[in-house]
C-alpha cells in the first residue's frame, strides 16, 4: 500500500524537467520535495496529480497503475500555490464542488454535503465562513479553504504545491502546524513541495532533496541533515 515512484521523466519543449526521479513512501507518510526553482519538484508533483503527463517511468500507489489514471479518477486532493479557489462560488460551494460533480449514484445528499462542509471548516479552523466569497478572505484563510476543498473528496493522496509560498512568515508557521495536525488526523499520504528547507524539515517524515530533475538525497529529516550525501545537498542546507 505504499507509493512507489520509479524513474519518472518529463521534457518540456527541449528542457528536461525530470530526468528519472524515484522514491518510495509508506502509506500515510508525509513527504517533502525540497529544492531550488527549476529542480523539477513541482513537475513531479503535477505528474502525481495527473496535471502533467510523464514521458516515461511509472508510479504505483495502493496497487494502482497511478499514471494510467486521469486526474479526475485519481482522487488526489491538490492544493495550489495561488489557491485556485473558484472565485464565483462561496466558500461552501468551493468545498462541496468535488462532491457535487460526482455521478449521481456516488453523490452524497444535499444535507450530507452541507454537514461535511461544516465539519471541514471546523477542521481547518474557519467555522461559520460558509457564505463568504474567496475575495472576502485573507491569504491564509483562502489556503485553508483550498485545503478543506481538497480534503472534501476523501483523497487517496494529498498533494501541495508550495501552498504557503504566497503567505507571510507568521501565517506560514501556523498553517504548517495545522497541516501536520490535519495530515495526522486524516492519515492520508501527503506530498508537499517547497523550496524552504526549514518548512520541509519541520513538517515532513521524509524529505527528497531535488536538483536538475533528479532526487539528490532521500531520507528522514534527521538523516539528511546529519549526513548530506552530495556537495549540493550540504551546500543547499547550509544556506
Amino acid at each position: 500500500m505504499s507509493l512507489v515512484v520509479d524513474s519518472v521523466t518529463k521534457k518540456f519543449a527541449r528542457f528536461p524537467a525530470l530526468k528519472g526521479a524515484s522514491f518510495v513512501a509508506p502509506q500515510g507518510a508525509f513527504v517533502s520535495l525540497l529544492g531550488p526553482s527549476g529542480s523539477g519538484k513541482t513537475t513531479l508533483l503535477r505528474i502525481l496529480g495527473g496535471l502533467e503527463v510523464a514521458d516515461s517511468g511509472s508510479v504505483r500507489f495502493a496497487d494502482l497503475n497511478w499514471l494510467d489514471m486521469p486526474a479526475r479518477t485519481r482522487n488526489a486532493g491538490f492544493v495550489f500555490q495561488q489557491y485556485a479557489l473558484f472565485k464565483h462560488m462561496t466558500v461552501a460551494d468551493n468545498i462541496a464542488f468535488g462532491l457535487k460533480v460526482r455521478p449521481r449514484d456516488r453523490r452524497p445528499s444535499r444535507a450530507d454535503i452541507a454537514k461535511r462542509v461544516t465539519e471541514l471548516l471546523a477542521l481547518v479552523q474557519l467555522p461559520g465562513l460558509e457564505a463568504r466569497y474567496p475575495s472576502q478572505l485573507s491569504g491564509g484563510q483562502r489556503q485553508r479553504v483550498a485545503l478543506a476543498r481538497a480534503l472534501a473528496i476523501d483523497p487517496r493522496m494529498l498533494l501541495l504545491d508550495e501552498p504557503f509560498g504566497a503567505l507571510d512568515a507568521k501565517v506560514r508557521k501556523e498553517l504548517r502546524a495545522d497541516l501536520r495536525r490535519i495530515h495526522d488526523h486524516a492519515g492520508v499520504t501527503t506530498v508537499f513541495v517547497t523550496h524552504d528547507q526549514e518548512e520541509a524539515f519541520a513538517v515532513a517524515d521524509l524529505v527528497a532533496v531535488m536538483k536538475d530533475g533528479r532526487i539528490e538525497q532521500y531520507g528522514t529529516p534527521q538523516d539528511v541533515r546529519r549526513d548530506p550525501k552530495t556537495a549540493f545537498v550540504s551546500e543547499f542546507l547550509s544556506v
Binding site: V53, S58, L67
Partner: peptide
Amino acid sequence: MSRRLANPTE
C-alpha cells in the same frame, strides 16, 4: 511506460 493520457486542461 504508461498509456498515453492527455493533460486534463487540454
